[in-house]
Nucleic acid binder design. Sequence first.
DNA 1: TATGAATGAGAATTCATTCAT
DNA 2: AATGAATGAATTCTCATTCAT
Lengths: 196, 196, 196, 196
Amino acid sequence: MRSDALRRRELILRTARQLFAEHGANIAMESIADASNVGIGTLYRNFAARPELVEEVTLDMLQDVKSAAEQTVDRLGQHDLTAWDEFLETLIKLNLGALSEALGVQLPATVGGRIMDLQRTTVKVVNEALELAKQENLIRQDITGNELITGIGIVTRPLPRAFAKAAPGLSQRLTRIMMDGMKPNPSLHPATPAGS
Amino acid sequence: MRSDALRRRELILRTARQLFAEHGANIAMESIADASNVGIGTLYRNFAARPELVEEVTLDMLQDVKSAAEQTVDRLGQHDLTAWDEFLETLIKLNLGALSEALGVQLPATVGGRIMDLQRTTVKVVNEALELAKQENLIRQDITGNELITGIGIVTRPLPRAFAKAAPGLSQRLTRIMMDGMKPNPSLHPATPAGS
Amino acid sequence: MRSDALRRRELILRTARQLFAEHGANIAMESIADASNVGIGTLYRNFAARPELVEEVTLDMLQDVKSAAEQTVDRLGQHDLTAWDEFLETLIKLNLGALSEALGVQLPATVGGRIMDLQRTTVKVVNEALELAKQENLIRQDITGNELITGIGIVTRPLPRAFAKAAPGLSQRLTRIMMDGMKPNPSLHPATPAGS
Amino acid sequence: MRSDALRRRELILRTARQLFAEHGANIAMESIADASNVGIGTLYRNFAARPELVEEVTLDMLQDVKSAAEQTVDRLGQHDLTAWDEFLETLIKLNLGALSEALGVQLPATVGGRIMDLQRTTVKVVNEALELAKQENLIRQDITGNELITGIGIVTRPLPRAFAKAAPGLSQRLTRIMMDGMKPNPSLHPATPAGS
DNA sequence: TATGAATGAGAATTCATTCAT
DNA sequence: AATGAATGAATTCTCATTCAT
């Protein structure tokens, strides 16, 4: 039953992540329980309160980013240059935007240490990948790991329905434009990078 | 008396817009009434329900964009090239991001015709301005009005607190990067524009 | 409407006090609302949360004790000796026991200043009445105001149903016995009074 | 094996009794299971539902009173007069008050026959002890067994925190006063005893 | 038989909306 | 027409009890 329960916990986590991305921060705990095919009590047995669930989903997402970055560091280390574009693809597909929008609203101002820690190490690995990408001139020299991630995160946020409808494919286009803004082009902005 | 009532309605609208931008979608109707110094009943007399208020705020915002675009068309028509950067500045200052985030969540899937209409004419004027800007090579040839507006809208959305804190100035940096992505650079992407 | 609302608030307060005494601490907020013939929302508009309602009921009760004590001081001051027994009667009828049982469980460990204050002044007045009663040899010299009140409070608590049923009138009998324990009888216990 | 199971049941019972006295009626079943070092399932195998556990604890408590009374009858029968005060001490130490408060709230209006029966026989034995005590003039002639037990029970109930804090030692003082009220003093109240 | 995971009814609280004054 | 009190549905969370292993 141990593994059974664990499987169920994972299921709830995945479901919650999906629903947060799809319906935003306001999704009711009961909807998450329903979509996971468990009773509300089971949801609460696994995640003592809403903020805890939000925290776990956040960690889950950060872990995905970190794993992708680690792979990218490996592959770029072996001069497999296709790795970089695939990394960006992965980040985009992770739906960081939808999630971070939903989660950002809810995370308490003072985020728990676990998130801070994982965020830190994640950014660190992303920075390593970035360093390698810069050496191959795959990206602007002044971009930081933080900027890369939040940049993709922000640009993949779901658009207001009205806009999304009026112009299908808009989201991908905007992503592309931001990626273009990160392309190497030393002449453009010697700029002072913000954040780390 | 008539104008008195009108003034009051405008006041509520402005207050709501401010509060939506500041506190997001979850702001309570009563808070809006309080901040407007009217009773909740008066708020509801002016806006029959929350979605209607949201709709009006959206229209208000679109109108601002349209007005700015109109001025820009005028000035660019007279070859006042500083007008373009000022237009972008204005769009950024309008806080489109914060607002559209708050409003986007709430607008019903089937947005009222009024919004669609104003959006259409707004985009049209923006496209005119854009056309002039392209002639002056102030912006990439393949950017559409819709992309410009939503691009600025999306990139000026408030960041999750955790990120914002970790890297102050990040938001401006991301805006800059997206603007860079829109800079004229014919070589980069002959791309097929999406949306209109 | 102002006075209407006030009347309603008082009604809720009275109802809550009654229900706390009758059904104990666990009575649901909704039951109180129902019994008051108001919606649950109205209950919460008047008392922002359960502890606030509990506090108000407590203050209401203390005020009753204080008023009774004040009258008693007046009457004893005029050597109306029947006042004392009537005071005790009143305290008993106030149902202090049922209430304090219900309320005691709920009041936070650190009771709000308002309760502390009113309790202090109440005990003070009771002590004045007590002083006069002692001069007339109506009560043991070593009894304090605090002891008188909590003594009556504790002995009028509702008995477990099983006992109450087995012996109707038991509660009154116990009250009587405790009152007997407070009768003047200098020989019995020169005891050191506890508390104040 | 049989005795093993029995031992476990007794352990749960003792634990529950302690927790009821300590934390009141609201203690959760799971806390009782935890404190007993058994799973919640085991608790429910031994006591089919909360009221049953409450009933068993009540019986346990009544049995203690009965045993103490039986000893007292024996000793008083041999004119060991110290037995009486020790009996009172024992009743006080049994923490009848805390328990009966917790249990009283929960016992269904129609208490099971087992409780009624044990209560009856308990009161009977207490009455025998009382008879002997009266012959030795250790207690008022008009006190009944029921009154003695519930009197001690009620006066040893835990006081609301606010009062307890304001006056440490208050509880013992009140107990003493009630005991004083039961001291032999034929002149005081020829009163009609209530209950049996 | 012991365990602890699962369940869902119930409790406190919030907030959009309606209604009496 | 303005006000703010009243309403109740929706939401978060708890805990007694059941059930699968």
